[in-house]
Amino acid sequence: MAFKEINVSREIEQRCTDSPEFKKTWEESRAEYKLIGEMISLRKQEGITQSQLAVITGNKQQVISRIEQREHVPSLKLFSNILDALGYEIKIVKKQTP
């Protein structure tokens, strides 16, 4: 069976147009989605596997995988612990207004 190619950006845009409820939920989750994406990029940039990160943070590899698959939203404590293990920290910065 062949895979169906989907333009994710277009699909999200269409669903936001069709459903105000979906749009609200999507906009509320975008920050989490972006932060988790940054965490994945940092892990890969540092050359650390999910298994290695799990050992360093005292978690199971499945926990790291579920976070990266966006099946689980980590607590701030866990997210901070993961970033610390990767050599990074969370900082709060005022938004720049256009």
Rank of each mutant, 00 (worst) to 15 (best):
M1L: 04
F3D: 02
F3K: 09
F3R: 02
K4F: 03
E5V: 12
E5D: 12
I6Q: 09
N7E: 08
N7W: 13
V8I: 13
V8D: 07
S9N: 11
S9E: 15
S9G: 14
R10F: 06
E11K: 03
I12V: 10
I12E: 01
E13A: 12
E13Q: 13
Q14G: 14
Q14K: 13
R15V: 07
R15Q: 11
R15T: 04
C16N: 00
D18Q: 09
D18H: 04
S19D: 00
P20K: 00
P20Q: 07
E21T: 14
E21M: 13
F22E: 00
F22R: 00
K23D: 03
T25N: 13
T25Y: 14
T25D: 14
W26L: 08
W26M: 10
E27T: 04
E27V: 01
E27F: 00
E28A: 11
S29F: 13
S29R: 11
R30C: 06
R30S: 08
A31Q: 11
E32I: 12
E32T: 13
E32M: 10
Y33W: 09
Y33A: 11
Y33N: 10
K34M: 08
I36P: 04
I36R: 11
I36Y: 06
M39Y: 02
M39R: 04
I40V: 09
S41T: 12
L42P: 01
L42T: 06
L42M: 02
L42R: 07
R43S: 04
R43F: 04
K44M: 15
Q45W: 14
Q45S: 14
E46T: 15
E46A: 15
G47P: 07
I48R: 07
T49H: 14
Q50E: 06
Q50G: 08
Q50P: 07
Q52M: 05
Q52F: 05
A54G: 09
A54D: 00
V55T: 08
V55R: 10
I56P: 03
I56L: 11
T57G: 05
T57S: 10
T57C: 04
N59E: 10
N59Q: 12
K60M: 09
K60E: 06
Q62N: 07
I64L: 01
I64D: 02
R66W: 13
R66S: 04
R66V: 09
I67S: 00
E68Y: 05
Q69P: 09
E71C: 15
E71S: 14
E71Q: 14
P74W: 09
P74H: 06
P74A: 08
K77W: 15
K77R: 14
K77A: 15
L78C: 15
F79T: 06
N81C: 12
N81G: 10
I82Q: 00
L83I: 01
D84R: 00
D84V: 02
A85V: 01
A85E: 02
A85M: 02
L86Y: 03
L86T: 05
L86A: 00
G87T: 02
Y88W: 06
Y88M: 02
Y88I: 07
I92A: 09
I92V: 15
I92K: 07
V93T: 08
V93Y: 06
K94E: 12
K94A: 09
K94L: 12
K95H: 05
Q96G: 11
Q96H: 07
Q96T: 10
T97A: 12
